[in-house]
C-alpha cells in the first residue's frame, strides 16, 4: 500500500445518527433512515468480480484478453474512458496469466495517462507491473494495477479533474461488466448472473454522468441512455435471467466497442 494520500472522504453516502449505544451491537438498523445516495462509493476492481466468478466455474480467461491496442484519442473524456477499460484489460490478462499482454497493457496505460496529463504519476507503477509480470507474480501485478488506477485518479483529482477520474472508473466498470456477462452468457448460472446485481453502482455512475454536461462527446450520451436500459434489468429482486445477461452483454459490448474505436 504505497499511496496513503487519496482521500475518498465519504460525503453523501454517510449519515449521522444520534447518540450511539456502543456496548450493544444492534442486530437490525432502519436502513430507510440512511441516505440512498452512493456518493464516493469505492468502485469494485474488475478482479473483485472475476475472483467471485472464478469460484463458480472455471473460466478460460485467455479468450477475453484484448489484443487490439486501441485508438489514439485527443478528447480527454474519451482517453479517460479508454484508460479505465485498458486497466480492466490488465486485470483480465492477469486472470489469464498472460505476461506479454500484461507488459503491453502496462505500456499502453502509460501512453494513455500521458495523453491526459498524468503520466508521470504512474510510470513507477508501469515499471513495477512489468517486473512483476516477468516474475509471474500475479498477486503483485493485481496490487500494482489497483495502485495505478488509484494514482491516476488521485493525480486527476489534484488538478480538479474529478469528472475524468470518474470516467476512468466507468470505463473499467463497463469493460468488466462486458466480460462478466460474456462469461455468464456462455455458461449460465443463477449465481453467476447474481454478480450483476449492482443497482447502487449503476445509480452512482448515472448520477456522475448527469453532471458532465460540459463534455460534448456523443459516446457519453450513448452510455447514459444505455444505463437507463440496463437499470431495470439488474434492479430486480428476482433472479437475473439468461436473456437479461445476454442483453446486458450486447449493450456493454456495444459501449466498449465505442470506447476503443473512433466510430462514435
Amino acid at each position: 500500500m504505497r499511496s496513503f494520500f487519496k482521500l475518498t472522504l465519504v460525503g453523501s453516502c454517510v449519515f449521522s445518527l444520534a447518540s450511539a449505544q456502543a456496548a450493544e451491537v444492534p442486530k437490525h438498523i432502519d436502513v430507510k433512515r440512511l441516505s440512498k445516495t452512493v456518493e464516493d462509493v469505492v468502485v469494485p476492481l474488475p478482479n473483485e468480480i472475476f475472483g467471485a466468478l472464478n469460484k463458480l466455474d472455471s473460466v478460460n480467461w485467455k479468450e477475453f484478453v484484448r489484443t487490439n491496442k486501441g485508438t489514439n484519442f485527443t478528447e480527454r473524456p474519451r482517453i479517460a474512458l479508454l484508460l479505465g477499460a485498458t486497466i480492466a484489460d490488465g486485470f483480465i490478462a492477469v486472470q489469464a496469466e498472460d505476461a506479454p499482454s500484461v507488459r503491453e497493457i502496462g505500456q499502453r496505460v502509460v501512453r494513455l495517462a500521458k495523453g491526459i496529463g498524468v503520466g508521470n504519476s504512474i510510470v513507477p507503477h508501469a515499471k513495477a507491473i512489468t517486473e512483476a509480470a516477468d516474475r509471474r507474480d500475479w498477486v503483485e501485478v493485481r496490487n500494482e494495477l489497483d495502485r495505478t488506477q488509484n494514482s491516476v485518479q488521485q493525480a486527476m483529482n489534484e488538478v480538479h479533474d474529478e469528472k475524468l477520474s470518474q470516467l476512468v472508473s466507468l470505463g473499467g466498470w463497463l469493460r468488466g461488466t462486458e466480460v462478466l456477462t460474456a462469461v455468464v452468457d456462455r455458461h449460465f448460472s443463477v449465481d453467476g448472473a447474481e454478480l450483476l446485481h449492482q443497482p447502487d453502482l449503476l445509480e452512482y455512475f448515472q448520477r456522475k454522468l448527469a453532471n458532465m454536461a460540459e463534455f460534448h462527446v456523443p459516446l457519453l450520451g450513448q452510455i447514459r441512455s444505455s444505463l437507463v436500459e440496463v437499470k431495470p434489468i439488474i434492479e430486480t429482486d428476482n433472479p437475473i435471467s439468461a436473456a437479461s445477461v445476454k442483453k446486458i452483454n450486447q449493450i456493454t459490448s456495444r459501449l466498449d466497442e465505442g470506447i476503443v474505436t473512433r466510430l462514435q
Binding site: 462509493v41 467471485a52 447502487d200
Partner: peptide, 9 residues
C-alpha cells in the same frame, strides 16, 4: 455509514 457493493463468493 458507507454503502458498498459486495459480491457473493
Amino acid at each position: 455509514a458507507v454503502r458498498q457493493q459486495l459480491f457473493k463468493g
